[in-house]
Write a protein that binds this DNA or RNA. Structure first.
Lengths: 178, 178
DNA sequence: ATTTGCATGTAATCTGTTACATGATTCA
DNA sequence: TGAATCATGTAACAGATTACATGCAAAT
């Protein structure tokens, strides 16, 4: 499906960047729904260059450090928009080790089961806290044609997801203690 | 992490099964949080046999059809419990192509963006409907030491997730139309 | 000076999907 | 008798992670 390709094209379509900056974007904003390590990003950038979707120019930082700043070509923009406009058939529910363990939780002792639920609850409460802090960077809802609009929507979605998971785990604890 | 290994051990720990029946289990119950194709299951069964986690006996069905019925060994049970009891550090948020598209949705026309949201909403409403139908197989909440307990919890979690996503997409449509 | 972060790449391995391949059984 | 399903496997490929590998720049 080449999703990494389109994630990169989409980001470069917002602003020209180096591979390192792309990596930072994946770590920060996009980490709630897509991500890639540098070992996957650099080869993909090379491939996209060969395919004519992006170009780069080399900038020298300091004395001799070479940076490759990548920019989307017209062909790359076309390619990206075509992907964005195409229908997305719903994927299978994502794999989730925690849910798998909860599925088998009847095999645990009462204490171990309780620990499993409460440990998960704590971790998700922590993530929720961070997301809410993140949200404070928006002082108002961005316009639907600004780059921040999608950012706002997915952050809202992430917060709703974590709230739901915390609720669910709360119910699991409740039902487990009957 | 060998998660497939433990998913298989966990299922076989409930009842002995053939590879084909395991595949069916992945397609039905577990599909909300784990799954595997037969092309991944059969090699993994071979590997687990070599590792001494499971054994099999061959049954002849009809005239000549050979079925391998797999059973967990004591070692396999120990291995499974050790995995189940170990702490699970929270994974990265799962990758999600739809959310990636929504992240970039400001690049779409008003109509295309509306279509994206409404198409997703429809698909998730449909999945929610199926999940609720599934839930009706439980006439009461299973005891926390029965095999059905985990089944009930993850189904509840899946329903809550789909409800949350439908709510989120509703809000996306709302904010997009301002 | 040393540590942290910037910056770019490759190699080996693991996980998972799609396609290839075969054959028996059951039901209409 | 033909189609759907049961049943088992392998091969090629795609996607992603971990580890290997190098070197510059900035801050302490």
């Amino acid at each position: 499906m080449r999703t990494l390709k389109y994630a990169i094209l989409g980001l470069l379509n917002q602003t020209s960047m180096t591979g390192y900056e792309l990596m930072k974007q994946f770590e920060s904003t996009l980490s709630e729904f897509w991500y890639a390590k540098h070992s996957q990003i650099y080869p993909e950038l090379k491939k996209l260059t060969d395919e004519g979707c992006i170009t780069f120019d080399i900038q020298i930082s300091g004395v001799s450090l070479e940076k490759k700043r990548y920019t989307v070509t017209e062909e790359g923009k076309k390619d990206f928009l075509k992907w964005l406009e195409a229908d997305t058939e719903m994927e299978a529910t994502p794999k989730d080790v925690s849910r798998l363990k909860i599925f088998f939780s009847s095999k645990l002792s009462d204490e171990a089961r309780k620990h499993l639920f409460e440990d998960q609850l704590l971790q998700h409460q922590c993530r929720l806290h961070h997301l809410i802090q993140n949200q404070s960077k928006f002082d108002k809802i961005p316009a639907n044609d600004s780059d921040d609009f999608g950012d706002y929507l997915v952050l809202m979605g992430a917060i709703m997801r974590e709230e739901m998971i915390c609720q669910w785990l709360g119910k699991c604890i409740e039902l487990s203690e009957r």
